[in-house]
Nucleic acid binder design. Structure first.
Length: 476
RNA sequence: GGCCCCAUCGUCUAGCGGUUAGGACACCAGGUUUUCAUCCUGGCAACCGGAGUUCAAUUCUCCGUGGGGUCACCA
């Protein structure tokens, strides 16, 4: 059996798009599911679009999400180099082979001529297509023009009229006639290959068994079929992935919301949550469950479950998935995360708070707001206090009683404190909710907080008393 | 426009000839709860249309319609 080897082959053009991350994920999952290998290859054949540090951004993002490659730039692997810009000689060699066999030809046409040609064709209602002017060139003429140093590209010679098929693992059997496909450029005048040339050569040389890529590539697959055939190579299995869409069913882009993979991390989504959700857009696990760890995803993943149609990216559902993943964290794990998101928080307080916050945070970015009362003074309006607490005299009595308990017992014994509070509440026939709301407001300044009595120990007796005092003062 | 792909609740989807068309998110209504959240219960909500095949079509075929992709010396 052939070894399963998949690859992720992005261009270093900036941040990693969330849709690209999904392509990487599914590709990675398939490799891991089969105990195969996952290769990272950088398609940097367009100098104009390349972004400074682009390769590092990709590697960093992949690492942050835990999609580790077995081979790639800066990693091990004996099929490199994994940067296409360092493989120019290899492509050249195969281009030469194609040229010699007559499967490709040189073209000297200028950009201006091509543009004009296309304009004319469109005017006549035809589909823009290279007119093969340079296919007629004699060998002598080609030699001469080459000698003169004329700019040239190499084009693939497509069959005239032939149905080209492939069996897509997602889309099924697809047929496209070669007449629909242009004589695509394989080698650019700057000596770099185009995507089509590079991808075929590299996928073959790197022994890729399954090509995961989005459906945008479907229409150019015939070019690749012809190339594989001309080079005498077997084509890898093709897995065309449906697009991730925005709410308006257009491909997901900035105007829909966040699209850069690392942005989601910055906004407080857990990497495993993003991955879990991403897998769910366009793939179904054949169970009613849909909340999975990365490891479970690896176990469950199957190409068969991949959807044919595009899926809308639902930020709300992502939030739900994220909340679940947060709740699955151990106190220790969440405590560490807490340290990163809320560095001001005392280290001793992290672990206990982590367990209190686990089920009430959907995004990590909510953490600082929820905990800022620890180090920020409370800005409490007495109106709010009275509105939630009741009559002024009652609220005052409540605070005085609370102060008494705190002074006598301190704040460290949560259960004892609760008992005491309940006794007082009963004795005075107060509403339980109102009593604790008064405490909550005085301590935190907000009506939305972690469990209040449980939070007191982390604040400390002194601060608690100070805040009660302040509340009393405010009431006058 | 040519070509290619797609089509079940608002969204992600299950279904692979006979189902009360199932689940999840969202939403709504209750319940538990000292806030918030969790949790629990219930509810709302879908087979794009038309032919054909068949005893029977959400399911198979065809034609529409709708959506998307693609037609570069970009990937």
């Amino acid at each position: 059996m052939v070894k399963i080897r998949t690859r992720f082959a992005p261009s270093p053009t900036g941040t990693l798009h969330i849709g690209n991350l999904r392509t990487a994920l599914l590709s990675w999952l398939w490799a891991r599911h089969n105990g195969g290998e996952f290769v990272l290859r950088i398609e940097d054949t367009d100098k104009k679009r390349e972004v400074e540090g682009g390769v590092e951004i990709i590697k960093k993002t992949l690492k942050e999400f835990g999609l580790v490659a077995d081979e790639g730039p800066g990693l091990s692997g004996d099929k490199g180099p994994y940067l296409q810009s360092e493989r120019l000689g290899i492509y050249e060699k195969y281009v030469k082979k194609l040229l010699e066999a007559g499967d490709a030809y040189r073209c000297f046409c200028s950009a201006e001529r091509l543009e004009e040609m296309r304009k004319d064709q469109q005017k006549e209602g035809k589909i823009p297509r290279y007119d093969r002017k340079c296919l007629q060139l004699s060998e002598e003429e080609i030699e001469e023009r080459l000698k003169r140093g004329e700019k040239t590209v190499v084009r693939l010679k497509m069959p005239d009229k032939e149905d080209l098929f492939w069996d897509d693992m997602v889309m099924g059997k697809v047929k496209i006639n070669s007449a629909e496909v242009d004589d695509t450029v394989l080698l650019k005048s700057d000596g770099y290959p185009t995507y089509h040339m590079a991808v075929v050569v590299d996928d073959h040389l790197m022994e890729i068994s399954h090509i995961f890529r989005d459906v945008r590539w479907m229409s150019s697959t015939p070019k690749h079929i012809v190339l594989y055939r001309a080079l005498g190579w077997e084509m890898p299995k093709i897995v065309h992935l449906p697009l991730v869409l925005g709410a308006d069913r257009k491909p997901l882009s900035k105007r829909h919301g966040s699209v850069a993979a690392d942005e989601f991390l910055k906004e407080g989504y857990l990497p495993e949550a993003v991955l879990n959700y991403l897998a769910l857009v366009g793939w179904n696990p054949k169970t009613d469950e849909e909340l999975f760890s990365l490891k479970q995803l690896v176990e469950k993943f199957d190409i068969e479950g991949i959807q044919k149609s595009g899926g809308v990216f639902d930020y709300k559902k992502l939030l739900h998935v994220n909340a679940w993943h947060i709740s699955q964290k151990t106190d220790e794990e969440l405590s560490e995360i807490l340290g990163k998101w809320v560095p001001k928080l005392k280290e001793e307080a992290r672990l206990g708070l982590a367990s209190l916050l686990k089920v009430r945070v959907k995004k990590l970015s909510e953490l600082p707001g929820l905990l800022k009362f620890f180090w920020e003074g409370v800005n409490l309006s007495s109106e709010l206090l009275l509105q939630k607490g009741g009559e002024k005299e009652v609220v005052k009595t409540m605070l005085e009683e609370i102060r008494k308990v705190v002074e006598e017992r301190g704040v460290d014994e949560v259960e004892k404190m609760k008992e005491e509070f309940m006794k007082i509440i009963e004795k005075n026939e107060w509403k339980v909710g109102k009593f604790f709301m008064v405490l909550r407001l005085v301590i935190c300044g907000s009506s939305i907080t972690p469990p209040i009595v449980e939070s007191l120990p982390y604040l400390g007796k002194e601060k608690v008393l100070k805040r009660i005092e302040k509340g009393l003062e405010q009431l006058g």
